[in-house]
Design a binder for these strands. Structure first.
Lengths: 136, 136
DNA sequence: CATTACTGTAATTTTTATTGTTACAGTACA
DNA sequence: TGTACTGTAACAATAAAAATTACAGTAATG
């Protein structure tokens, strides 16, 4: 994860889970996170695509949770948001003439996959509802 | 991890582990990874600081592994290289007036710590020697 | 003892990624 | 028909990463 998209998505979902079905505007959400509303709307596109939230356009519109918080695991959020490899991808193309360079991408990918699976397994143990319950 | 430092460190260590004590120059290493030699040298500073490698200055100098490959676990490498939070830190400061915003950093940090621990646990199951053995 | 081949490191530039901003079309309520 | 939203595109600003240049320091070697 190179950017703060996971944190932003979790923040959005937590706000919505705490709103009890009430619609929240991207302006309001952005105010809580303290980022630009357009960034929130961009992130919402992705959260909608994955079925976590739905929105209502027009006046008095806004966003709401489209799935029960107890049925949203953090592994789901992670998978919805992830884009790049967990441990960072090398941008270079290793030297194919070097016996190590030639094969390292393959072996690194396997290593990364195992590491990521372990992490995702841990994330799957917590739901949005669990998370929300921690707030006073 | 925001950049490819983990991959670069692993690549360096794998080359050295395969070199059987022979000194490798940063130029040679950079050639295998296909990055700038200065980046290699910078990364070597860190690997030296953590005792994985040692170097010899001057003509015919170079770098060598300072620890047996079987005693270097990937979790050690990860810990030596890591700098930022695994899942990405939000740069913003959430709104302290919002009940969610006020507490989310704490709860997110706990979540991140658990996730990272799971991943590091997995990384600790593989040594540099295991990794090297996978190469033809 | 000068030349050569390295490491070590600082300073700077270039490139790429991320985040923020502006602008405006589309939608729905009142 | 005005107002308050979402949805998006285009672009600008900022930050982070990577590459480059430059050179001092060190050790082998003829």
């Amino acid at each position: 994860m190179n950017n703060s998209r996971f944190a932003i998505s979790v923040h959005i979902l937590t706000l919505l889970a705490g709103a009890n079905g009430e619609l929240l505007s991207s302006e309001y959400i952005a105010g809580s996170i303290n980022i630009n509303p357009v960034l929130v709307r961009k992130e919402l596109i992705n959260l909608k695509k994955h079925g976590f939230v739905a929105s209502k356009e027009g006046k008095n519109g806004g966003v709401y949770l489209n799935k029960s918080a107890a049925n949203i695991r953090f592994s789901d959020v992670y998978n919805a948001v992830k884009q790049s490899s967990l441990l960072g991808e090398a941008k270079n193309e290793p030297n194919p003439l070097c016996p190590i360079g030639r094969q390292i991408k393959t072996h690194l990918n396997n290593l990364y996959t195992d590491a990521e699976n372990a992490m995702v397994g841990q994330l799957s143990t917590t739901t949005l509802q669990n998370f929300l319950n921690q707030f006073d």
